Amino acid sequence: MTVTAKDLRFNVSFLFDVLSKGEDVTITHRGKAKAKLISYDDSQQIPKDDAMFGMWSDLNDDVDTLVRNMRKRREF
């Protein structure tokens, strides 16, 4: 389905219905395709155990605990 940017602004709920049926939506602006909305597939989510990566990948604590500890007030 192809819609204009104006249609996107005024008919968002209709576009969500179209996406829920699995159809992709191309958004145009001044007659040229600018973006593409695709339906979200839950089966492609990143597994929860791979939530940390990079420099924190070797730590055993979860991200929420690490961030909470960083935000605590420092005591000297």
Rank of each mutant, 00 (worst) to 15 (best):
M1P: 00
M1Q: 02
M1I: 02
V3M: 00
A5G: 06
L8N: 01
R9W: 04
R9C: 08
F10V: 07
F10Q: 07
F10I: 03
N11T: 00
V12I: 14
V12N: 09
V12W: 10
S13W: 03
F14L: 08
F14H: 02
L15G: 00
F16V: 15
D17I: 03
D17L: 04
D17T: 10
D17H: 05
V18S: 03
V18P: 00
S20P: 01
K21H: 15
K21W: 04
K21M: 14
K21A: 14
G22M: 06
E23W: 04
D24A: 15
V25I: 15
V25K: 00
V25F: 00
V25A: 01
T26L: 09
T26W: 02
T26F: 04
I27H: 00
T28Q: 03
T28F: 01
R30N: 15
R30L: 07
G31N: 04
K32A: 01
K32C: 01
K32N: 02
K32Y: 00
A33C: 09
K34T: 09
A35R: 10
K36L: 12
K36Y: 03
L37W: 02
L37N: 02
L37I: 08
L37Y: 04
I38F: 10
I38N: 06
I38T: 15
I38S: 15
S39V: 02
Y40R: 09
Y40C: 05
D42A: 06
D42Y: 03
D42I: 03
D42T: 03
D42P: 06
S43A: 15
S43G: 14
S43F: 13
Q44M: 06
Q44V: 09
I46D: 07
P47N: 10
P47Q: 09
K48C: 08
K48V: 14
D49R: 10
D49G: 06
D49E: 12
D50Y: 05
A51S: 13
M52C: 05
M52L: 10
M52V: 02
F53R: 14
F53Y: 13
F53W: 13
G54S: 05
M55S: 14
M55Q: 11
M55V: 11
M55I: 12
W56Q: 08
W56I: 14
S57T: 11
S57V: 13
S57A: 15
D58G: 08
L59Y: 13
L59I: 12
L59W: 13
N60C: 05
N60V: 08
D62S: 12
D62I: 05
V63Q: 07
V63D: 07
V63L: 10
D64T: 12
T65W: 04
L66R: 12
L66Q: 13
V67F: 11
V67C: 10
R68K: 12
R68S: 10
R68H: 04
R68I: 05
N69R: 13
N69G: 04
N69E: 13
N69I: 07
N69P: 01
M70I: 14
M70L: 15
M70S: 14
M70Y: 12
M70T: 10
M70D: 11
R71Y: 08
R71F: 08
R71E: 10
R71A: 10
R71W: 05
K72G: 08
R74D: 06
R74T: 07
R74Y: 07
E75G: 11
E75Y: 10
E75K: 14
E75M: 11
E75S: 12
E75V: 14
F76V: 10
F76Y: 11
F76E: 05
